[in-house]
Write a protein that binds this DNA or RNA. Structure first.
Lengths: 187, 187, 187, 187
DNA sequence: AATGAATGAGACTTCATTCAT
DNA sequence: TATGAATGAAGTCTCATTCAT
């Protein structure tokens, strides 16, 4: 197994365990075992547990960005682009429940707190595209002139909540529901 | 200090530590110390750490119910009652950030998972009032006929997100913003 | 409840718990609860746990002595007196399994060790009578001239073992078996 | 020190402490210290304290079986074979007082209770040989036809008692006494 | 004498991390 | 690089004992 493969194997094992058991239920030894390496080996790739957790977050975020980037539409009305992004995200979460669960774990822990702040001061990737989308929308008067952060909360909040309900098995997401959710987010 | 006072003191210390540091960062020893009692004393009031965590959840839930109950309006249009509940909740969270933080911690942990399910099958208290509000709204055709769970996600989701942003200091909630959020939830 | 009653109640509770659960499984709080008194009250009657355990031993020993004393026969051959003592002891243990279990616990613990030594240097009560019985037997040449301690082991050992097997339910002691055991002890 | 050595070192330390101080007086920390390892290391070899205690029992039992197996005589009269086994056991206990003390502790504790029952339903090792010896004896009418369990009690009981008295220093076992005890057991 | 809440030492156990191989 | 045995700090919980009431 190449170096990169082994690192990926560890990240994958960590993701699955964190998603299923939470941070608390996934000691380094279990992660190593699931990844098929020795306990000490993990430290060849990640200096500490904290760093592993952070790198995994970046990895997941990057995956989402790549996914959305591939399906992006630059042309079209703000409404259409919004629809694309939101339904894309929703579909991603539904098809990658472990990524979703991990993001939730991460944000809801001391680890994630600092990232909320970083988000506020700007970051790279998908969020930028989202922001420019909102900015365009506001310019065209199709989106109300609300502080950006609130906009984020209002649109992404329901998205996360619906995704969570789906993953927990409370609801079954079909195309109609996706559409419904997107509409709700838009409204 | 009376027995009840001491129990409250422990709950208070636990709430603050859990809210600030998460479950992981708040060992029983710290809770005891912050409450001004010996380590063993906590076990006079709570059989185990898990039970303390659960009782604290019930306590917080109860506080919220009491708060909303005191400000409830039974008369009025669905829209007005909705406004009352939502803005009430928002105000509660903003003025009781530790309760809010704790609820988040709790729901996002193995402890809280079972409660999501319980919520689904109905429970007592505020959620019932919320449901009947939604039911009334749907009957009067002022609320779209969407599955109840989704409705919860769509309305409470933004509420939680905005509250979180305020508590984290990203935004300053004023009356305008509260109104804005309520409107968004309603939409 | 009089003072003496209360002390007896505590001893009784301790006996039952120690017999059933062993020393390890019977904390002072349980003993107090079973005795119907508060935890602190036990310390009005027994300075410490160790002292309670020792006094309970003396109590049990005393009960056995009284039981045998009531049924003693001074007249008769050595063989007859031996038969009386041994079958009496056996019957006592069978009808008082908790006393028996306690004695076993006690002797098989750091607490009991010193009493083995004391026994060696002589003590009061039943053992004296047993000794004089053996001495008489040896004088009359009906008992082999073996060191007293060995004699004790050889005669009381089987007795304890049979009693234990009965209490544990491995065997059912009837008159025949009692007789058999007495004979074996005598042999 | 090799892995096996370290495991043996821990078992040895545990044996000595349990024999000297009883289960109660030998916490894991002391065992580890005596074995010359860190506290956590014990758990590399034994999942829990209970498991350590059980494995130590098996270890001691195995040692005794090996010892007797090496000195076994298959030929000879029942009386001779009996003599070999009993005096062998006695010598073993006298030369391995810690093993003896440990067996006593073990059987007289919640841990050992289940083994009494197992013994009853048969087990491997030395006890089988003992049983077949008794069976042969009964067939040849040199041993009375008594239930097997009683026979065990009657023969092994004195053996244990004499061994205990020797180990506690009450008596000095010499060849004569060994012979005497064997005779007594046989009778 | 009696209470029982409170104490705190100490027990068992887990696990992130290190390091000799 | 990789290993995995070893470490030991830290966590949860128990319980004999004390003491203000």
């Amino acid at each position: 197994m190449s170096k990169i493969d082994k690192k990926q194997e560890i990240l994958k094992a960590a993701l699955e365990l964190f998603a299923e058991q939470g941070f608390h239920g996934a000691p380094m030894s279990k992660i190593a075992e699931k990844a098929g390496v020795a306990a000490g080996t993990v430290y060849c790739y990640f200096e500490s547990r904290d760093i592993l957790i952070h790198e995994l977050f970046l990895e997941v975020k990057e995956r989402i960005n790549r996914f959305l980037y591939d399906r992006r539409i630059i042309e079209g009305t703000v409404r259409e682009r919004f629809q694309t992004v939101i339904s894309g995200l929703l579909r991603y979460f539904v098809t990658h429940p472990e990524d979703f669960r991990y993001l939730e774990q991460f944000h809801n822990s001391p680890y994630g707190v600092e990232y909320r702040r970083i988000r506020f001061f700007g970051s790279t990737g998908e969020e930028d595209r989202m922001k420019s989308l909102f900015t365009d929308g506001m310019k065209q008067k199709v989106i109300k002139d609300i502080p950006m952060v609130i906009l984020f909360s209002l649109t992404l909040g329901p998205l996360f909540d619906v995704a969570r309900d789906h993953i927990l098995g409370f609801i079954q997401l079909d195309d109609d529901l996706v559409q419904l959710t997107v509409n709700a987010c838009w409204d």
